[in-house]
């Protein structure tokens, strides 16, 4: 492929790729399952159980949020989550920075993610 042509096509290709994500990001209504089997791998582990923080190997503040079963027991047994009561669950307060440091400390979680966590707690915070 001639270089001139290729160099012209590159910005076009990437504009297409980038814009496809932006527009696709409009998305639709929330229909994700409010279950620990989803919330843990989709929200908690990528955002909280990172190597710098609450991974098994780092155990920041002795809080471990992986693997899934251990993460569940950490949150429930240590009362970060009060089943049925998201309003008094410390985990939600941390995510919203209500009266405490924000967690995760590097970026606020999207509200829809926090709402999904709240729904899971409201449903009884089962290990399902």
């Amino acid at each position: 492929m001639p270089i001139r042509d290729a160099s012209r096509r590159l910005p076009f290709c990437f504009s297409l790729l980038l814009s496809s994500g932006v527009f696709a990001g409009c998305g639709g209504a929330e229909d994700r399952p409010a279950r620990w089997a989803f919330i843990a791998p989709a929200i908690i582990e990528p955002s909280c159980a990172t190597a710098s923080c609450h991974s098994a190997v780092t155990q920041r503040a002795a809080v471990v949020l992986e693997p899934r079963e251990r993460g569940y027991h950490t949150l429930v047994d240590r009362h970060f989550v009060i089943a049925g009561a998201p309003a008094v669950s410390e985990m939600v307060a941390l995510m919203r920075a209500e009266g405490s440091r924000r967690m995760p400390p590097d970026f606020a979680l999207p509200e829809v993610d926090i709402a999904l966590v709240e729904q899971w707690i409201l449903n009884g915070a089962h290990d399902d």
Binding site: V22, P110, V112
Partner: peptide, 8 residues
Amino acid sequence: DLAVSGTG
């Protein structure tokens, strides 16, 4: 999640 609004 590309299917859910507000996750970008």
